[in-house]
């Protein structure tokens, strides 16, 4: 038996929004530690690695580890039937071919449940090596979304150049070119508005804006995003999943392979 109850159900709705455009289907691997999902997009260029920690749920029961194969578009549609302030419970019997979602209104005066068929997925898992990145850039998630959106006007790719002075995002195309420079924040009152660069070595890498724009769908989960880069390795973009009190409930991490010169 697997059962997980999340009082702040909107977090699960936001998690689904953050992956449903990038992935068609994936397995939720449920264990005593929590619910994990790892999957690549169909072109094997980007990977999502997501974790919802068991202690982030108000109730969590997982008698034995199970893998729930899910059509993510279907799950996303069902979760749209939950109100933003609903409490969401996920339930699956061992060896079941279906998963149940229950939505309770805060006053408990409306309870709905939806059963969804599970899929048999033959998923391949990639080993992601522990990496000490040469640059880690933290910035407001809204700022990163805006940069990716704005530079998409100019081209398909962005060059991210991180030095001790700050970060520069550049794009070019037929109509011209554009650059956005972000300096490290000297003093900010609010931590979530800061730009912080932790750099051991300067790094310049090129990435597809199409994928970065998919990643920014996770911005509603977190006020800050971190970009971790080293030369010649995939970029890691991380949004932490925090509840209203700011306690960590997990993360959504995206990995994106770089583009190289022909």
């Amino acid at each position: 038996m697997f059962e997980a109850r999340l009082v702040e159900g909107s977090l699960l709705k936001k998690v689904m929004e953050s992956i449903k455009d990038l992935l068609n289907e994936a397995s939720w691997d449920c264990s005593g530690n929590g619910m994990c999902l790892q999957a690549m997009d169909s072109s094997h260029v980007a990977l999502v690695s997501l974790m919802l920690k068991s202690d982030g749920f108000e109730n969590y029961r997982c008698d034995r580890s199970i893998s729930l194969g899910i059509n993510l578009a279907s799950m996303s549609k069902i979760l749209k039937c939950a109100s933003n302030d609903d409490i969401i419970t996920i339930r699956a019997e061992d060896d079941a071919d279906a998963i149940t979602f229950m939505f309770e209104s805060p006053k408990q005066d409306r309870v709905s449940d939806y059963e969804m068929k599970l899929m048999n997925l033959d998923t391949e898992h990639l080993g992601i090596p522990d990496t000490e990145y040469a640059c880690v850039i933290k910035m407001p998630s809204g700022e990163f979304s805006r940069i990716c959106r704005d530079l998409s006007v100019l081209g398909d790719s962005v060059i991210i150049c991180c030095t001790k002075d700050g970060v520069r995002f550049s794009a070019k195309g037929d109509l011209g070119n554009g650059n956005i420079k972000l300096a490290q924040s000297a003093n900010v009152d609010k931590e979530e508005e800061a730009v912080v660069v932790d750099m051991r070595e300067a790094v310049t890498l090129t990435f597809s804006l199409r994928y970065l724009n998919f990643f920014t769908k996770a911005a509603p989960l977190s006020s800050q995003v971190s970009l971790s880069m080293s030369e010649d390795v995939p970029l890691m973009v991380e949004y932490k999943i925090n509840d209203k009190e700011g306690d960590s409930k997990g993360y959504v991490r995206y990995y994106l392979a770089p583009k190289i010169e022909d």
């Binding site: 094997h44 260029v45 990977l47 898992h125 080993g127 995939p234 392979a257 583009k259 190289i260 022909d262």
Partner: peptide, 14 residues
């Protein structure tokens, strides 16, 4: 022009 690399170039199967 740039070439998009695949993730399998960096990460191995487990």
């Amino acid at each position: 022009n740039n070439i998009q690399l695949k993730l399998s170039y960096f990460f191995g199967n487990t």
